[in-house]
Measured scan of single mutants.
Amino acid sequence: KKRQCKVLFEYIPQNEDELELKVGDIIDINEEVEEGWWSGTLNNKLGLFPSNFVKELEVTD
């Protein structure tokens, strides 16, 4: 099962390897990279994003 999260706050990337987040976006979570940062895929782009800007969705079948 893939983990997903929903964006709660807009985020403007500070580095090229970060994702731009818009409220309501759904991100496929890949892994936790470091404290406070997750790796995920949004709009076919893989990048990092701050985990405190999102809420993980309940996994359903």
Results as ranks from 00 to 15, higher is better:
D28F: 07
W37I: 04
L8K: 08
K45E: 05
E16A: 08
D28A: 04
R3C: 06
L46H: 13
C5I: 03
E58T: 10
F9T: 15
W38F: 09
I29W: 02
T41S: 07
T60H: 14
I26S: 03
K55I: 12
T41L: 07
E31L: 07
D61E: 15
L8G: 11
L46M: 13
F49V: 04
N43Q: 08
T60W: 10
E32R: 06
P13A: 04
E58G: 14
T60D: 15
L42F: 03
Y11T: 05
E32L: 02
L8W: 05
V23Q: 12
R3N: 06
N52H: 07
N44M: 07
G24P: 01
P13R: 13
Y11V: 02
E18R: 01
K6I: 15
T41P: 00
N15P: 03
L42S: 14
D17A: 11
L57Y: 15
I12A: 13
Y11H: 08
L57V: 09
N44W: 00
C5Y: 11
E20P: 12
Q14Y: 05
V59E: 15
K55C: 11
V33P: 02
N30K: 15
S39V: 14
N15W: 05
V7F: 01
R3H: 11
N30M: 11
D28P: 02
E34R: 12
N15M: 03
E58Q: 15
L19H: 02
T60A: 06
K2L: 06
I26P: 01
P13E: 02
E35G: 07
I26T: 05
F53D: 00
K55F: 10
R3L: 10
R3D: 08
Q14G: 07
L21V: 03
K6Q: 15
L42Q: 06
E35N: 11
G47E: 07
L8H: 06
K22C: 12
G47T: 03
S51W: 12
V23E: 04
V7G: 00
V7D: 02
V54P: 01
D17F: 09
N52R: 14
K2S: 02
E58F: 10
I29C: 04
E58I: 09
N30R: 10
I27K: 00
V33C: 01
K1M: 10
N15I: 01
V59M: 09
S51F: 06
N43T: 01
G47P: 01
G47K: 01
I26K: 03
E10K: 09
K45N: 10
E10Q: 11
P50N: 12
V54T: 09
D61C: 04
Y11S: 04
V54H: 01
E34M: 12
E10V: 06
G36W: 04
I12H: 10
E56D: 05
D61T: 07
G24E: 09
S39Q: 09
L8S: 12
P13Y: 03
T41N: 13
E16S: 14
E18W: 01
C5K: 03
N44K: 13
E56K: 15
F49L: 02
F49Y: 08
C5W: 02
D17S: 15
V54R: 00
W37H: 03
L57S: 03
D25R: 05
C5G: 15
G47A: 09
E34P: 02
K55R: 13
K55G: 11
K6R: 14
E58A: 08
G40V: 08
C5A: 15
Y11F: 02
V54N: 01
E16G: 08
S39A: 07
N44S: 09
L8N: 06
V59K: 08
N43K: 04
P13D: 03
V54M: 03
I27T: 00
S51T: 12
C5S: 07
N43F: 11
Q4W: 11
N44F: 04
S39Y: 09
K22D: 10
L46Q: 13
N52L: 08
V23S: 06
D28V: 08
N30Q: 12
E34S: 13
V23W: 08
I29S: 02
P50T: 07
E35K: 07
L8E: 12
L21M: 07
I27Y: 03
L46K: 14
T60R: 07
G24L: 01
S39N: 09
V59I: 12
V54E: 00
G24W: 02
D17P: 04
V23Y: 11
W37P: 04
L19N: 03
S51A: 14
N52E: 14
E32V: 11
K1Q: 08
E10W: 00
I27F: 04
S51N: 02
L19E: 03
I12G: 07
D28Q: 05
K45P: 00
Q14P: 06
G36F: 09
K22R: 09
L46P: 10
G40I: 00
L57H: 10
E58M: 13
I29E: 01
T41Y: 12
W37G: 02
E20V: 06
G24F: 04
F53E: 01
E35Q: 11
N15L: 05
N52W: 05
P50H: 14
I27A: 03
V59N: 07
V59R: 11
P13M: 01
I29R: 03
C5P: 00
K22Q: 06
D28Y: 08
G36H: 06
F53S: 13
I29H: 05
S39I: 13
N15F: 05
K1I: 09
L46I: 15
L42R: 06
D28W: 08
K45D: 04
Y11Q: 00
E16W: 08
E34I: 09
L19S: 01
L48W: 10
E20I: 05
D25N: 06
K6Y: 15
F53C: 14
K2A: 10
N44E: 03
L21N: 07
P13K: 09
E31S: 07
G47Q: 02
V23P: 12
G40E: 01
P50F: 04
K6M: 15
E16M: 15
I29P: 03
G36Y: 08
L8M: 15
D25A: 07
I27V: 13
F9V: 13
E16Q: 13
I12T: 14
V33R: 14
I29A: 01
E58D: 14
G40L: 00
S39D: 02
F53Q: 10
C5T: 06
E10M: 04
K45A: 01
R3E: 06
N44Y: 05
K45Q: 14
I27D: 03
F53W: 04
F9A: 13
V7L: 04
K22V: 06
E58R: 09
V59P: 11
L21Q: 01
G24S: 03
N15D: 12
N52Y: 07
W37Q: 02
R3S: 07
G24Q: 00
E31N: 13
T41R: 10
K55Y: 06
N15G: 10
I26Q: 02
E31D: 13
L42A: 06
L8V: 12
L48K: 15
K1F: 07
D28L: 06
R3M: 09
R3I: 06
S51Y: 04
K22M: 03
G47Y: 06
K22A: 04
L21C: 01
N30F: 11
D17L: 11
F9G: 08
K55E: 14
Q4H: 05
E34K: 15
E56P: 09
N44D: 08
N43G: 12
E34A: 10
N30L: 14
N44Q: 10
S39P: 00
E58Y: 12
Q14R: 10
K6F: 12
F9E: 15
V23I: 11
V33F: 09
N15S: 12
K22W: 05
I12N: 15
W38S: 05
K1G: 11
E56R: 10
E10I: 01
N44A: 12
V7K: 00
Y11K: 06
N43V: 03
T41A: 10
E35R: 11
C5F: 07
L57E: 11
V23T: 11
L57P: 05
D25G: 01
Q4S: 15
D28S: 07
E20T: 06
T41D: 12
G24A: 01
L57C: 12
F49H: 04
V33H: 06
E56W: 02
E18G: 05
V54G: 03
K45T: 05
D17K: 04
